[in-house]
Structures are given as C-alpha cells and as structure tokens.
Design a protein around this nucleic acid. Structure first.
Lengths: 312, 312
DNA sequence: GAAAACTATCAATTATATTTATTGTTTAGT
DNA sequence: ACTAAACAATAAATATAATTGATAGTTTTC
C-alpha cells in the first residue's frame, strides 16, 4: 500500500470516473486501473463497484476512503511542517470566504498579498460558513474568512475586524425619518435579511436564517446578492441591514437611505479561522497582517455591539 | 514520500542505529540509508543528526517523526478496517495488562484464547495504567486490561469483572481477631498498598499512590510484587489488601490471615479498554467473551463497593 | 444500431527500491 | 597510539514496481 495508491483511490471516489481521476492525478488511466486493482488485490476486497454507472464505492470502499483521506492529508502535512520550520512562505493555500465578505474584502487585499508573497498560490473559494467548517476540518481548506465566533472547538479564530451594520431604509419606510437608529427600532417582520445566518447575540433580536424560515418568510437570498437585497428593498419589501464595507458600493442615489446606528452599533466580527492543528501558520499570519493593515484604513472604528453568527 | 520511507525513519528514530533499524524492517542497511537520504533530499532538510553518536533526531526531524507515526499508524489501520469488515479474527494484537492482573488472569484465559483463535498473534505486555493509556492513544496497543473507570474520553471500557478486595491481616495485627471487616475499620497508616493507584471512590478512604507518597511512606512496591507484599505484611509491617484472585495463590499457612469484608465489599472494576476509534473490535469482542466465560467460574459474586483507580 | 464513453488488459518502457560489495569514519579496547 | 570493531555512506548491479501507449471489451447514449 502506498500513499500514491490511496490518492488514486480518493481521486476516483471523488470523480466517480477513472479517466477524469487520472487526469487530475496527471497520470494515464491504465495507471489508476492497475494501481487500484493492485491495492484491491492486496487487501482482497473491492473498493469500487464497477457494475454501477457511474462507479460507486462499496461498503468497505467508503470506509477505506475515509481512512485514506486521513492518511493523504496527514502526509501532505509533512511538507507543511517543513515549510513552517524553514519559515518558508509559499505553496498552495486554500482560503474560503463567506459570500458577504468576498466582494468587499477580496479586492482590497488580494493584489497587495500576492505582490508581497508571490510564492503563495492562493486558491480562493466562496463558501457558506457551514461548508467552510466542514472543509477546514477535513483539510480541504487551509483557512477561511467568516463571521465569528463559531464556538467550534476544532477551529481557531483570529479576529480581523469588527464591521458595523448600517441600515438601508427606503423612503416610504416607517423608520425613514430617523437620522440614526437604535437596535430596539428594528422589527423582524419588515426586514430583508442576509443569508449566512447572522444572528443577534443574547437573544435580544434574533435574525437567524433558521428563525426566518420559521416565521414564514416569502423568499431567501442567494450568496453575494447584496445588490439584489437593495433592489428588493427599493421595491418596498422592507428595510435591510448592510455590513459597513458594502455601503461603500451603494450608488449615490441610494446613499441617502443609509442610516447608521447609535452607539453601540450592531456589528459582526469577521475573523480568519483555521484548524487548531496550526499548520501553515506562516501564511495565515501573513494573511492576517495584510488584511489588518488594509482594513485599518477603511473601517471607521465605532463603539460596536457584536453580533454572533450562531443560531443558538 | 512513501509510507515505507516513513516507517524506515521511525525505525531509525527508535533504534538510533541504521543497522539495527534495517534488521527490524527486514531490509539491508544501505536500503535505509538511501531511502532516508532520498526523503531528506526531497524535503530539503536533515531528519537525523549523524554527527552525534548514537544518532539523534534534528529539531525538524522529531516533528517529522511525530507526524510519521500518525501516518504509519493510520495506514496500518486500513488492514484492520478490512479485517473488521470481513469478520476475520486474526493478525497481530497487542494487549497491555496491569501488573496486579497479569499473574492471575493471564494463565486463566491465554491457552483457551489461543486455541480458539489460532490466527491471532497475541503480544502481551505488562504495563502500568499510565503507560497503557499512552500506548492505546498512540496506537502501540490495540487494547489492555486495567482497573477502571479511567474517565479518559479517548478510551472505551468494557467491564470484565468486579474483583473484591480481601484483607490480609497478620496474626499480631489489631484487626486480626475480626472475622469479617468493614471499610471503616481500615486505617491508612498501618496498611501496605499496591502500586497502580487503586483509590477508594467517593473519598471515603483514599488509598491512592499519590496520597501515599504525601503521607511519607517508607517504601513503594514494584510491579507484580504481591508476593513481596505478603512477606512484608508477615514481617509485621502492616495489613494489606489483595484482589480476590490473588488470594487463590496464598499458601495454606497464610490463608487463615485472609479476612473478607462485610457486604458491600470494596472491589475493583477490571475492564478491557481500547481506543474509541473501535478498531479490531472482532478480536476485542473475542477476548471479552473468552475472559468473561473463564472468570464467571472463578469469581464468587459479592455485593461489592467499587473502587476507582482515579486519583481524584 | 452506431457512436461515444469508459474501464481492463497487454507488452514495453521507465523509474524506483533493494542488494552485494566496498569504502570511509568513528568508537572502544588494549 | 594503535587495532579491531561498529557503523553509515557510496557505487554498481539487480530486482521490483510504476507508468505508458495501444488496444480490446464493456456499457451507455442518442
């Protein structure tokens, strides 16, 4: 049994197709067929059920895949350990970002970062918080940017910044005459809300997605659809809350509809999160520095009331 | 990087010697030298400091060894997973046993077990509870027999039997005229105690090794030295407590010094323990059955008061 | 029912691991 | 200080194993 064989198995399991898997592994298809057969012979079991189309894992096969993921991930970490020791900042780095952070933060730091650390090959994916947690734990992501705290004991958090929420209130709304708002002014029933489950803490007001669906909302918003959110709001479907950085992109006509909160303003905590095993810390540290430096110039520091993304 | 290379590294790290390590791996010494060099070249670091005699790990080397142990252990588990799926009962099985259980329990079940499951290669080691916990967690042991509960969340316990303690009281002792004892009769200061930290639960009386050393005892007993314990007791150094199975080996002269406890008798819980990951469960189950069957005939069931090995 | 999509198989090739023999060091003993 | 022993590195030869290109044999799709 070799690590190579195991990674071939993983590739086939992921792609459900020997030919595609072979491409991903940069070898020919017979290589995969033969190596996987060899492994199956040695273990005297079938990992894949080739009678099904597309190919499926057998019962024992899926157990082996789980274990193989472990092994392959742990092997990859050896290079990380070496890099860390050397203080080398480079290699592939997979970063997840939640949709409501992606469009505002990414353009701000990406160029800066890639210039400063040209050897790091950043692979950025837009993912929901839930997906991010899964993928950090299974090793598919090296780190992510998400709203915190998550209270997940496998994951460490380093706060990047606190981002106040700003209310967007169309002209005909009952609150449109208030210059500044208080949290108490909000009414869950006339508000359009973001995906990604940002919940007010302490149960004062609960803005969770889950609670939304309970109180029969008529629609849900897809990822990165803050623009849509604004349009719907303008259509009279209610007010909404925008993370501060998004307000910078609001067009001039609508800017007058923005209403800040009186201190303490509700805010979300945005953090760089990563697995507690602490690998690739040099890159994580570099990212944190770069982002902190950039954001420091953009976010006006308010007296904020932090909002947790937790559902409970 | 291959699993083979990693296991070569582990062998050299353990033996601090290429030649011996090569023997353990069933290859020649140049094979190790070359494969390890190759790995070092690929990672562009030195794992071993060959200037030191015997050979030492470098700083980065020991990090790599830690990770390599992970990987090699996890790889070995693939065969275990397959065996489990097949219901195959065989292969190497490393069982740890604490000293005070070893001499009484092992002869009772060993022949029986090896007859019933000839394909299992049992490797039995006498170890302290502490060593057992370490080695179950790092994968050096597949299971162990120890006094429980351990309250270690990584380790599962399956109770094998409850073994009452029997007091051994030499003729000149203040308690020697009592036919049967109560726990309250015991006085920590005139008692000789076992290693392995068997503590009375609930803090009624605490017989822990740790507390012993605090209350300036004059000596400590080594593993498996129940015979010595008896001799010391006969020398007038105090009474002692024997696990029930040990009383079967007390010679006829001394048998009259044995005093049982009134119900509920203090007792220890002896369990088969293993890592929560639940590998080699077929063998563990087979062991449990065999031992339970044997012990059922030997231990008279009392109304017992369980004594925990925990220090707190 | 023909084409397309896939996997298995074969023989040839390439790459890799391992071995035997040997050299070069260092250590231990006298 | 010298010799023998212990040990790791190296070199060249051999054995083993992985990979490939070509192709055959399936099954699926339209």
């Amino acid at each position: 049994m070799t690590i190579t064989q195991l990674s071939y198995v993983l590739a086939v399991a992921e792609n459900q197709n020997f030919t595609k898997a072979a491409e991903k592994c940069f070898v020919t298809q017979p290589t995969l067929s033969m190596q996987i057969q060899k492994l199956e012979d040695q273990l005297d079991i079938k990992i894949f059920d080739r009678s099904k189309k597309p190919i499926e894992l057998t019962e024992i096969g899926s157990k082996i895949v789980t274990q193989a993921k472990n092994i392959v991930n742990e092997s990859n970490r050896i290079q990380d350990i070496v890099d860390q020791q050397k203080g080398y900042i480079g290699g592939e780095f997979r970063l997840g970002i939640i949709p409501t952070v992606m469009p505002t933060l990414l353009p701000m730091f990406l160029k800066n970062f890639t210039n400063k650390y040209p050897k790091v090959k950043l692979k950025i994916e837009e993912l929901t918080t839930e997906e991010i947690i899964t993928r950090i734990n299974d090793g598919h992501l090296d780190a992510a940017i998400a709203a915190t705290p998550l209270e997940n004991e496998m994951i460490k958090e380093q706060v990047l910044y606190y981002e106040p929420f700003v209310a967007y209130i169309p002209k005909d709304h009952r609150l449109s005459k208030h210059e500044k708002l208080n949290i108490e002014d909000l009414d869950i029933d006339d508000m359009l809300l973001l995906e990604d489950g940002h919940c007010f803490r302490d149960g004062v007001i609960n803005l969770c997605k889950t609670l939304k669906s309970q109180s029969d909302e008529k629609f849900q918003l897809e990822s990165g659809s803050i623009e849509t959110l604004l349009k719907l709001s303008n259509e009279g479907l209610g007010m909404t809350l925008l993370p501060y950085l998004h307000t910078l992109d609001v067009n001039d006509n609508d800017k007058s509809n923005l209403h800040q909160f009186n201190d303490p303003s509700p805010a979300r905590e945005v953090s760089l999160i990563f697995h507690k095993s602490g690998l690739k810390m040099q890159i994580i540290e570099a990212l944190k520095q770069t982002i902190s430096d950039i954001v420091r110039g953009s976010i006006v520091f308010h007296n904020v009331e932090i909002i947790s993304p937790l559902s409970k």
